[in-house]
């Protein structure tokens, strides 16, 4: 195992631990009733980007229902993921208007550029791609949402720009961090 993957794995474990502590602390804010099942899952999804297996068991225990039921409900809805998302999540709208205006070509361009398929994340966990049914910005079709911002009138040529933008930002951060580290020394 190389040095970098080792740290990444350790990081993931530490992240998961912190995540479960956070969830445990927040459960008590919800009444112990079945009606809170979906809201609880939404809280976890919103704060952590996905539902780890342990979280499903925690919710089941808290609501005193079988964990298979929680799993059954969670897998029914599009909103819930079961694997961690990318740091930057790109959602390609494939609503009717976006489809007619070539949304699938935008999706393909992201897939090609990032070398992953929809539903996957890049090995460095920087980017993930999802398709969504409609973000309700049909007049601006084709649309993609990048993290929280909606990008209207997408074109294949814009795809490269968006990814490049994040990469430049990341490099800049890395440089600044290096400078800071050097300064501290």
């Amino acid at each position: 195992m190389s040095e970098t993957t080792k740290t990444t794995n350790e990081e993931i474990l530490a992240e998961e631990k912190a995540m479960l502590e956070d969830i445990a602390a927040r459960l008590s804010g919800f009444a112990r009733e079945r009606a809170n099942l979906v809201p609880l899952l939404q809280m976890i999804q919103e704060r952590h980007g996905y539902l780890p297996p342990d979280a499903i068991n925690m919710v089941a225990e808290y609501l005193e229902i079988a964990s298979c039921e929680v799993y059954g409900v969670a897998t029914f809805y599009n909103q819930f993921r079961f694997t961690p998302p990318g740091k930057h999540q790109i959602k390609i709208c494939l609503g009717t208007a976006c489809h007619v205006k070539g949304g699938d070509i935008i999706l393909e361009n992201f897939e090609r550029k990032l070398e992953i398929r929809e539903g996957e994340i890049t090995p460095d966990r920087e980017f993930g791609i999802d398709r969504v049914a409609c973000v309700g910005c049909c007049a601006l079709a084709p649309v993609a949402t990048v993290d929280e911002s909606v990008q209207g009138h997408m074109a294949p040529s814009k795809v490269e720009g968006i990814i490049l933008g994040f990469q430049i930002e990341k490099e800049r951060e890395a440089r600044e961090k290096q400078k800071d580290d050097a300064g501290e020394k």
């Binding site: 979906v38 899952l41 059954g72 409900v73 599009n78 819930f80």
Partner: peptide, 24 residues
């Protein structure tokens, strides 16, 4: 109550199921 992304929940009995914490 926030819907969790299932088109079928626009159907009223499915919508009720999802509020009750069931598969919609």
């Amino acid at each position: 109550f926030q819907g969790s992304g299932a088109f079928v929940c626009g159907e009223e009995t499915a919508l009720i199921q999802s509020i009750e914490g069931q598969r919609g």
